[in-house]
Design a protein around this nucleic acid. Structure first.
Length: 470
RNA sequence: GUCCCGUUCGUCUAGUGGUCAGGACACCGGCCUUUCACGUCGGCAACACGGGUUCGACUCCCGUACGGGACGCCA
């Protein structure tokens, strides 16, 4: 039998980084076991579900590379089937109509709470014999076994056992005639042939209720794997106040999807002492049974480190499109892809995100309008003026313009003047970039080109002369 | 309040009765070097607490504390 997993987001907002992790685990489990990974949109909350949210979630999953193996299922469309199941249970006496009003139940819960009990419906309609006034609203509730317990072997949590007396008769169909979450989930999972349910630990308490529906229908139980939740740096459940929680926010911040996947997979799971994984390696090694049971805290600093690794390991051509986007955001109207491709190798090991890479690439597009004060004070000093002027002269009369030639010119200059390379290279860096931090000077000169380089150098030389004269 | 789960360096984790408790990020320092970064070497730093069980507990059991989740006609 081939395994089938599903990621089942509800489209009430963006794709949360925690949801993305759940999707990733579903996906990796399916890949590892040679099964299928499916997607089901749980849009049964008519009030909060939106088409925009569906699109945003799809976009997030697409970006992560977590594309389902079959077309997505939209739960709301299966409502007739869900109701059919509810009515079958009703006919078989496994469910019943409950006419209690919301107020009545609220009151009951309130009362139970003050008594220190777990608030739950007491099943008062279960054996109601008195006829009910015609037209009064009703819901359909499942008859939950009164005694006994539900137990299952959770792939991540281990053996789990919940006493039935902790449960109440859950609602299958609302008073407006629409199916509830539990009914829909169980029915769809069955109909979709889901064999393994990988989801957040927040669903652990839902599992026994869902198992009861499954048992009532005589369906086979899927295997469950409840993964620990993700927490923010303060230890609380990850939420908006923890900053970027939408996966698309990570894309926009310049992270690579393979890095996000890598980091997310390592949260709660490890494989020897390996930290960096390609998607293919994750598909090969990720073992959900080895996932730990405690919640993990999302650490952006480590994500950045992982991202830096992937930036260095990714082919230039694959870095160009997202980098172009980052550059546009920084105000570079129409960056030339070929030019950008030439710049990438000079920046790859200097950036942890593509946004940072774009920042560091800016000088390639715009000549410095001012020189960093500290850099000027440190490197544009009187003793270097002569060697620097001589270098500019030599570069100006250079025939040809490539890194080897440039280096030879620098070497000849320092030999003539008896200065150290650092003394000469730093002013050049300032002239070219405005600061004393940049990729190698030969690399920069080569990419900027002869004309632009000389323009920047001459301008700086003039500035340098004025400064020394003062 | 009730039920369920968790607890090893600040963070992610290895560890399944006998280890100097290992690795990674971050942080600090050295090296490399035309700067930064990469790389590399080294440093700092943890078994929540209290009882058991045992010749011996991070590892097993019980309790406490702390944290999280769940208790909807939301999903």
């Amino acid at each position: 039998m081939t395994t089938r997993t599903r990621f089942a987001p509800s489209p009430t907002g963006f794709l949360h980084i925690g949801g993305a992790r759940t999707a990733l685990f579903c996906y990796l489990f399916a890949r590892r076991t040679g099964g299928k990974y499916l997607l089901r949109v749980e849009d049964t909350d008519r009030e909060r579900s939106t088409a925009e949210a569906v699109e945003v979630i799809f976009e997030g999953l697409r970006w992560m590379g977590l594309n389902p193996d079959e077309p997505p299922v939209f739960q709301a469309r299966n409502a007739p089937r869900h109701l059919e199941v509810a009515h079958q249970l009703l006919r078989e006496g496994k469910a019943y109509r409950c006419h209690c009003s919301k107020d009545e139940i609220d009151q009951l819960r309130e009362q139970q709470k003050t008594q220190g009990l777990k608030p739950r419906y007491d099943g008062r309609c279960r054996s109601r014999s008195a006829p009910v006034a015609e037209g009064r609203e009703s819901v359909i509730r499942l008859k939950t076994p009164l005694a006994g317990a539900v137990a299952w072997e959770d792939v991540i949590q281990g053996p789990v056992r919940i006493e039935n007396n902790q449960l109440d008769d859950l609602i299958l169909v609302r008073s407006d005639g629409t199916p509830t979450y539990h009914l829909a989930v169980v029915t769809d999972d069955h109909d979709m042939g889901i064999t393994h349910i990988v989801r957040g630990e927040d669903h652990l308490n839902n599992t026994p209720r869902q198992i009861h529906i499954i048992e009532a229908m005589g369906w086979t139980r899927p295997v469950y794997a409840h993964m620990p939740l993700l927490h923010g740096m303060d230890g609380a459940k990850l939420s908006k106040r923890h900053g970027a929680v939408s996966v698309l926010a990570y894309r926009d911040a310049g992270f690579l999807p393979q890095a996000v996947n890598n980091y997310l997979a390592r949260l709660g799971w490890s494989f020897g002492e390996q930290e960096i994984f390609t998607m293919a390696e994750l598909e090969r090694h990720f073992d959900i049974a080895q996932v730990g049971r405690s919640a993990a805290i999302f650490d952006q600093a480590k994500l950045e480190w992982v991202n830096g690794h992937h930036i260095r390991a990714t082919a230039v051509q694959d870095l160009v499109p997202p980098l172009l986007e980052q550059l546009r955001r920084k105000g570079i109207a129409e960056p030339d892809p070929a030019y950008v491709a030439a710049l990438v190798p000079t920046l790859q090991e200097r950036a942890r995100t593509l946004a940072e890479m774009a920042d560091k690439a800016l000088f390639y597009f715009v000549a410095p309008t001012a020189y960093d004060d500290k850099a000027v004070g440190k490197h544009l000093t009187a003793p270097v003026l002569e060697p620097f002027a001589d270098l500019v002269q030599r570069l100006d009369s250079l025939e040809g313009w490539n890194e080897a030639l440039l280096e030879a010119t620098f070497q000849a200059t320092i030999a003539t003047h008896g200065v150290k390379m650092g003394k000469l290279a730093q002013p050049v860096r300032v002239a070219l970039t405005g600061s004393d931090v940049s990729p190698g000077v030969y690399e920069v000169l080569a990419r900027l080109g002869r004309s632009e380089s000389l323009t920047r150098l001459e301008r700086c030389l003039a500035f340098f002369r004025r400064r020394v004269a003062e």
